[in-house]
């Protein structure tokens, strides 16, 4: 039971840390993107892409979570 708890904590840490990293990166990019869009509205598409690029981090976090649970559990 204690082992299962540790696995859950590990999975939670993997997901939480990657989600935090994504949020942190996106906040920085988002500010710049909104600033650029205020100057030129046509930059919406590019701004959106730049903002969502760090999402890969959380997706990889999700992969790590699945692997932790399936391999360890």
């Amino acid at each position: 039971m204690a082992e299962a708890g540790l696995i859950a904590v590990g999975a939670g840490l993997a997901f939480g840390a990657s989600a935090f990293a994504t949020a942190w990166a996106e906040s920085k990019i988002g500010v710049a993107a909104v600033g650029a869009m205020a100057e030129k509205e046509q930059l919406f598409g590019k701004g959106l892409i730049l903002t969502v690029i760090p999402e890969t981090l959380v997706i990889l976090g999700l992969v790590a979570v699945i692997l932790i649970i399936r391999l360890a559990g």
Binding site: E55, T56, I59, L60, L62, V63
Partner: peptide, 12 residues
């Protein structure tokens, strides 16, 4: 490969 894994969001 990270691009392909990125499609996991479809499920997530």
């Amino acid at each position: 490969f990270s691009n392909m894994l990125s499609y996991m969001r479809l499920g997530a």
